[in-house]
Amino acid sequence: MKKVTIHTSVNHKHYELEIKPNLTLLSLLREELGLTGTKCGCEVGECGACTVLMNGKAVNSCLVLAPQIDGQEIVTVEELAIGNKLHPLQESFLNHDAVHCGFCTPGMLMSAKDLLDHNSNPTEEEIRTAISGNLCRCSGYQQIVDAIQNNNVSPLKG
């Protein structure tokens, strides 16, 4: 298969990459760039574990072909914290015990970030809709919803 060249920005770094045109964005991130924070759970766009931001919008990276990111901006979970300083959303996930096995967490965070970037005060219904494409088998979603809703306050109860 003939390779194609793309120019893209991933986590604010610029890349010139020569890739197979059928490579998915998910494989590009995990296998070519070593960004394994983004997870692979189904490869058919159903689980949301692979969610990243493309030009600020949450997308399933398993459904995006790498050539489609030519000239686009990608942000992954690795970019949320600045050094050891966590993003408030990450802090909130920790304090609401919204992280169990954690496999869905990177995708959840990215879907939540997209929501909050466009709607700073979402209702529970809006939050549930925003993460409805992100499957979590561990948590029953409640603490995740709470973490997203109360992302500025950080109650560790009990």
């Binding site: 960004l35 394994t36 924070g37 983004t38 997870k39 992954t76 979970v77 690795e78 949320l80 914290a81 966590l86 990450q90 996930f93 920790l94 304090n95 015990d97 992280v99 954690g102 496999f103 967490t105 990177p106 965070l109 560790l156 109860k157 009990g158």
Partner: peptide, 19 residues
């Protein structure tokens, strides 16, 4: 009896945890 943070959660929110 307290709701302490999970000891393994930091790596899981930053994408550093290795599955």
């Amino acid at each position: 009896g307290k709701s302490e943070r999970r000891v393994d959660a930091w790596g899981k929110v930053t994408g550093k945890a290795k599955y």
